[in-house]
């Protein structure tokens, strides 16, 4: 398990990406899988920084751990982020734009959450008394996580 305590500035993103990289050290992810992992971390961090902290900075705690491979021969990487921004009670704010509506009316907003939802097996938000908890689970076939 890896724990970081970041100040919510853009430079902190590099540290968060490094944490994701470290979690996957020795693991055979292909280029696209690795890019998705970095992309999702980037998007969630940017959302917390922009919407949670209004670009003014704030603390973020994060940890990453591999869950035991299940009988379905898949392994899961769990990344938890915890911020201390005002708790989000309106769950619709944690949803990405509907890709079906994009076909007829492409819009620039809500794409970050859409990418997070599309690239993860599980994306959960839990409002806390003094912040928010975000849980990301990435799914990989067992053979993909063997060095």
């Amino acid at each position: 398990m890896i724990r970081l305590h970041l100040h919510g500035c853009k430079e902190g993103l590099q540290a968060l990406q490094a944490m994701a990289d470290e979690a996957c050290e020795g693991v055979c992810l292909d280029e696209i899988q690795h890019n998705r992992l970095i992309l999702v971390v980037d998007e969630l961090f940017a959302n917390i920084h922009e919407h949670g902290y209004n670009n003014a900075g704030g603390d973020i705690e994060c940890e990453a751990q591999w869950l035991p491979c299940a009988e379905d021969m898949h392994c899961r990487l769990e990344i938890m982020l915890r911020d201390f921004a005002p708790p989000i009670q309106d769950v619709s704010k944690c949803k990405g734009v509907n890709p079906e509506t994009l076909k007829d009316n492409p819009v620039a907003g809500g794409l970050g959450m859409l990418l997070i939802e599309a690239a993860t097996e599980t994306f959960e938000h839990t409002p806390l008394a003094d912040g928010n908890q975000w849980r990301l689970v990435f799914l990989f076939k067992q053979k993909e996580v063997q060095a």
């Binding site: 696209i32 998705r36 992309l39 890709p99 994009l102 076909k103 794409l111 859409l114 990418l115 599309a118």
Partner: peptide, 8 residues
């Protein structure tokens, strides 16, 4: 792949 994830 990012475009495909977003179905764009």
């Amino acid at each position: 792949d990012v475009f495909e994830l977003a179905k764009l």
